[in-house]
Design a protein around this nucleic acid. Structure first.
Lengths: 212, 212
DNA sequence: GGGCCTATCGCACTAAGGTGTAATAGCGGT
DNA sequence: ACCGCTATTACACCTTAGTGCGATAGGCCC
């Protein structure tokens, strides 16, 4: 059985806020609910910290000395960190909230924060994150393996996942069908998939498929 | 060659705003750019109107007498209308913008609206909409066809797209492999796909695949 | 030069998929 | 009772895919 509602203890919450009062209150709130919580006063402190790979959520103040919350969000996105982010802010405006939401934030709550709303947003984010994490890991592993393919193998793969027959692949690449079979076999073993269906599925989801 | 930047004339813009001045100004702006524009004073007027199936964008005031913009957004979503929506508002707040963005709005601009920003948001939305429209149509067609499958054919399809072999499908369903082949053949012809790869791809994207 | 990777091709054999025909059987509606 | 849809199976035949072994050849690095 897969756990549909992971226990709070299996999740990590990161709070980044330079306002001592708010930060401590937030930590207290989630700690009392049984979550593991770590807090930071600045974005760079958070970045320096070694993050574990538990499902989790980042609670982020928008205005902070140094790097702002929005900037931190962009930096994490650039590094393909998929940690969900809930913003809280004292002096935010609409364009700022829109920008954050466009960039994938889970929620954007003005201070004073409604504690119940915050807990709900974070809980939801963590549940979704927990559910998608193993899928994400599967895709990362697939991408990693696809990277080990040679150029030719990659070409063959792109045609295979579009349903092109070995015979046609051979003609299109100007090689023998037997050779296509060799490449195709390597693609399957190198990527570790055990069926064409899985290869297509993972190619789709990982966005590895090349355009026409 | 597929048109990457569709001409404005190939797109339809709907403006819904009870404020005469703003509405007329918006219409003028986009009309002068060559877009086809239709405007409405209330949500219900828009809903009564026959929409053509061109790519387009809805520019929506949040506060209106009768149905609000947010409510209209929800109603359209409930009817699976995928028209992109750009909100403009005079008295919006952060929670409202967040709600709209969570519900899939393209942008949320406070009045007085920066004309350039509005044009950019709408143009982007239309381009994206135009690009995804034929894919959406393809998926709708696929879903429609999958609905014509019999129960057994559907069961077989679910196993096929997971890479299960005919032999194993037969054992799992307690029938002969020959029978599986018959069902499988019907699945392919009824859904109109011409390869396993395409079946898997469309099943993935259309969300037809059943869970374990 | 020797080792390693990549790419190529051929052959033989096995397994799996796809098609067409035909037949049986139950179920629901006219 | 008859028709149509669904489901089932069998048989025959052909096409694809997959595997294992061997072999050649060019490029690159030490």
């Amino acid at each position: 059985m897969t756990t549909k509602h992971p226990k709070p203890a299996d999740a990590m919450i990161y709070v980044v806020d330079d306002d001592d009062l708010v930060r401590r209150a937030t930590v207290r709130t989630f700690a009392s609910l049984g979550f593991q919580v770590t807090s930071f006063q600045t974005a760079s402190e958070f970045l320096d910290h070694d993050r574990c790979d538990l499902p989790g959520c980042l609670i982020l103040d928008v205005q902070m000395p140094g790097q702002t919350g929005i900037e931190l969000q962009q930096e994490l996105a650039a590094h393909h960190v998929d940690l969900p982010i809930v913003f809280i802010t004292g002096h935010g405006d609409i364009p700022m909230s829109v920008k954050a939401m466009k960039a994938g934030a889970v929620d954007f709550l003005p201070k004073p924060v409604d504690e119940q709303q915050l807990v709900q947003a974070v809980s939801q984010a963590i549940n979704r994150h927990a559910e998608t994490r193993h899928q994400t890991a599967e895709l990362d592993e697939f991408r990693r393996r696809v990277d080990t393919l040679t150029k030719r193998e990659h070409e063959v793969m792109n045609l295979v996942v579009r349903g092109v027959l070995n015979k046609q692949i051979a003609r299109r690449l100007g090689i023998a069908e037997d050779t296509v079979k060799v490449h195709r076999g390597r693609v399957m073993s190198k990527t570790g998939v055990d069926s064409l269906a899985e290869l297509v599925r993972l190619s789709e989801r990982s966005g590895v498929a090349a355009p026409d």
